[in-house]
Computed example of a mutant assay.
Amino acid sequence: MRPVTPVGILAAKLESLVRQVEQLKQLDPAFTAELHQAYALANGLDPYLDLCTTPESPALAALVERTNAEDWQQRFTAGETVKPLEQEMVSGHVEGQFLKFLIHLTRARRVLEIGMFTGYSALAMAEALPADGEVVACEVDAYAAEFAQKCFNESTSGHKIVVKVAPAIETLKQLAADGEVFDLVFIDADKAGYIDYLDLLLTTGLLATHGSIYADNTLMQGQPYVSGMTTPNGEAIAKFNQAVADDPRVEQVLIPLRDGITLIRRV
Rank of each mutant, 00 (worst) to 15 (best):
M1E: 12
R2S: 12
R2L: 14
P3F: 09
P3C: 10
P6M: 12
I9W: 06
A11M: 06
V21H: 09
E22F: 02
Q23W: 08
A33K: 13
E34D: 07
A42H: 01
N43G: 14
Y48A: 13
L49F: 08
D50H: 12
D50V: 12
A61V: 11
L63S: 05
T67L: 03
G79V: 04
E80S: 06
T81E: 15
V82N: 12
Q87Y: 00
V90R: 02
H93F: 03
F101M: 15
F101W: 07
I103C: 07
H104R: 13
L105D: 14
R107H: 12
R109T: 13
R109K: 14
R110K: 12
V111N: 10
L112K: 06
E113S: 00
E113I: 02
M116N: 05
M116R: 00
F117A: 02
G119L: 03
L123Y: 08
L123P: 10
A124M: 09
E127H: 01
A128V: 12
A128D: 04
A128E: 08
L129E: 05
P130N: 13
A131N: 11
D132C: 04
G133N: 00
G133W: 03
A137N: 05
C138F: 10
C138D: 07
A142H: 10
A142W: 04
F147I: 02
Q149P: 00
N153M: 01
S157A: 15
H159V: 11
I161Q: 00
V163P: 04
V163D: 03
A166G: 01
P167W: 02
I169Q: 07
A177C: 07
D183W: 00
V185T: 13
A189D: 04
D190L: 08
A192T: 13
I195N: 15
G205P: 06
T209K: 13
I213R: 08
Y214A: 09
Q221E: 14
Q221S: 13
S227H: 09
G228W: 07
M229E: 11
T231L: 07
F240M: 02
V244N: 10
V244C: 08
D246K: 14
E251P: 05
L257A: 03
L263M: 14
R266N: 00
